[in-house]
Amino acid sequence: MLSQIARRLLTALPTLIGVIIVTFLLTRVLPGDTAAYFAGPAATPQAIEEVKKKLGLDRSLPVQFVSYVEALAKGDLGASLSTGQTVVKDIRTRLPASAELTLAGLVLGIVVAVPLGILAAVRQGSWIDHLCRVVATAGVSLPVFFSGLLLVYLFYYRLGWAPPPMGRLDVFSTAPNSITGFYLIDSLIARDFETFRAAFAQLILPAVTLGMFALAPIARMTRASMLAALSSEFVRTAKASGLSTRAVIVTYAFRNAMLPVVTTLGMVFSFLLGANVLVEKVFAWPGIGSYAVDALIKSDFAPVQGFVLTMAILYVMLNLLIDILYGVIDPRVRIEA
């Protein structure tokens, strides 16, 4: 098993190289003046010249690429003009916020979508099936920034149930000691239930926004693959052998139906990491998405580049994880590897 995982890690290498090349190209082969981008909008011509030297933009592309990779290897993504910090440090402090939000959204999505999809398939044509179809189509049609605002209006302004959409904690709470970086977990570790409650209250609306978005593709795929599994010949055999409905649905149909769903998770992550940027902006969430958006507006390019690269590496790793998970479920992949 370990050697298989190692082999899978190796297969991710070409993808990572591709990612690095693309981010390099995005920053260096611009139609505009790269140095001007990096120097910021208020830079003098001398400052631009200096940046050009510093970035080595006066050298040939391959040479630039080598130094770019060297800097990457040292963990150097440049510095942010607006925060004055190195990009790596900024991203490191803000990443847990994004990760906590995205994971919360994903978990919410899966918890609702998978049972919904299964029920819809098992009771094909019933009201729950129609509900599932409506949810699946409506969910992918919802712009997350719009659904987030609607939730804010309803639960904050109208009902007053939710706190104002201003970050991870209200002003009266202090952040728990950082262990995992996830406020929910850290506050529990510190047995600070007041902070936990506050963090939870802040998290719930943005997480629901993301969850609503994530659940559509998962529910759709669960329903479709469950339907396919239920009409498959091996389920017919299981039925003809008199197995109980539970065994037929769970052991035979469900486990097979989960294979395409696991594959879909890759796409769902892609959507979620993108939607995350928008949701962070709506809820003033101090994650890397809002960091990148702020930098974009200020034409501060190093953070944007660092953000794109971080997201891509994260995503490649998530896909790897999904790949390994797939191998655990499906013996066909396991043995052939």
């Binding site: 070409p14 993808t15 990572l16 591709g18 990612v19 090349i21 693309v22 981010t23 995005l26 920053t27 611009l30 139609p31 505009g32 992550f269 892609s270 959507f271 979620l272 990491l273 993108g274 939607a275 940027v277 928008l278 990148a292 974009l296 390019f301 944007v304 580049q305 953000f307 794109v308 997201m311 891509a312 995503y315 490649v316 896909n319």
Partner: peptide, 23 residues
Amino acid sequence: RTADTIMAFPLFVLAMGIVAALG
């Protein structure tokens, strides 16, 4: 390979990067 490399990015994030880079 081209498709794989594009797919290696969360798509909206890549779109952000492209627009930021191209103008």
